[in-house]
Amino acid sequence: SPPSSLATLPPFFMRGSIIQLADGELKRVEDLKTEDFIQSAEISSELKIDSSTVERIDTGQTPNVVVIQFGVGELKAQVSVEVLMEYPFFVFGQGWSSCCPDRTTRLFELSCAKLCVGDVCVSLTLRSLG
């Protein structure tokens, strides 16, 4: 199936952006921890946290675009997304990571690690799907 596209860069990855957790607490995007996502999902009635393991990272059809294939959840359902190489994902226990951390840091001033095959990213699914 064709990859879903996350080809835009949302404003909330900019350092200093204010993020509201599910319990109402406000945090800056650069201060978020794995626990913030886990606890917010626990409160949510609609969303649950899933682990998405990076299985492949391929160069996309257009410049600066990569196609990342994830194995989602316990069943490792195959999902691929097409993203700009600086698009950050939150890796469990590690924090923000992208395929090109230098660009992410330059564009968003967001400290970032290199996203690698085998990294386990925070993702969401609908509770009703489980």
Partner: peptide, 25 residues
């Protein structure tokens, strides 16, 4: 009168990609 500048607040879930596993059956 100076109106306070509103700071955008983003919900936590907007930061996380929504990866719905494909239903195999």
């Amino acid at each position: 009168n100076v109106e306070p500048r509103s700071v955008p607040v983003f919900p936590w879930h907007s930061l996380v990609p929504f990866l719905a596993p494909t239903q195999s059956d």
